[in-house]
Simulated scan of single mutants.
Amino acid sequence: MEITVVHGDITRQQVDAVVNAANRGMRGGGGVDGAIHAAGGPAVLADCVARFPHGLATGDAGWTTAGDLPARWVIHVVGPDHRSGQTDRSLLTSCYARALAVADELGAGSVAFPLVSAGIYGWPKHDAVAAAIETLAAAETAVAEARMVAFDRGTYQLIAQSLSTT
């Protein structure tokens, strides 16, 4: 699998699936979650309610329609909230591994990932990048491209630098 990085908006990526950094309730929120729900429209939320009436556990993943997004699917992952004491790194790496497993179930060849838990959940950015790249690089998957999407220039540079040394 090729791991790439782009500086841009995850809601505009032309991929089979976009990964949403969701909260456990699966009803929309801020950051990436809010952007995906806003761009995807009401169909994303309706599918979340139907498929995940009780939400998802931290570290797990599940899919919904992508609604109005250019992707076919949204793969929702629930990252650990570092600020509230969820510091088990295996929960973070599980988000990437489970997202790829769901992508394989769907037959997705390209998947766009945000940097899970590194925003409002406060996971230290350098370790969030390392966890993502380590997990993606070690994965056995049929996904051809895992695209890391960085909304800001600093995160893009950090991911690009990390990819160049792996």
Rank of each mutant, 00 (worst) to 15 (best):
V102N: 08
M26K: 05
I75R: 03
A103D: 11
A131H: 01
D104P: 13
V74D: 00
A66Y: 06
G8R: 00
W123C: 03
L158F: 06
C95R: 00
V15H: 05
T141F: 13
T87K: 12
V74T: 01
Y121S: 04
Q157S: 13
Q161H: 14
D152C: 01
Y121W: 10
R72I: 05
M148R: 00
G119N: 03
A50C: 10
A97T: 13
H7I: 08
G59I: 07
A144T: 11
W123A: 01
I159S: 01
L69C: 02
A61S: 09
P70I: 11
L56T: 07
P124I: 04
Q86S: 14
T155W: 01
A71D: 00
L115M: 07
D104K: 09
H126N: 09
P124M: 05
A57S: 09
V19I: 09
S117Y: 02
H37L: 06
A66T: 04
V5N: 00
Q14L: 14
D68T: 09
L69M: 03
G30F: 05
G34R: 03
P80G: 06
A146W: 04
A160G: 05
D81Y: 14
A160Q: 03
I133W: 03
C95T: 05
S90I: 07
E105L: 14
C95S: 04
G41S: 10
A139C: 07
G154F: 03
A35T: 12
D127N: 03
S94Y: 04
L56K: 01
R83G: 15
A21H: 06
A66L: 06
V6Y: 03
V49A: 11
H126P: 10
G55V: 14
T141V: 08
V149I: 04
R51A: 15
V15F: 09
D47C: 13
E134D: 15
C48Y: 04
A35H: 09
G119K: 02
G107Y: 09
Y156L: 01
G28P: 12
W73F: 14
H76N: 11
C95V: 00
V32Y: 06
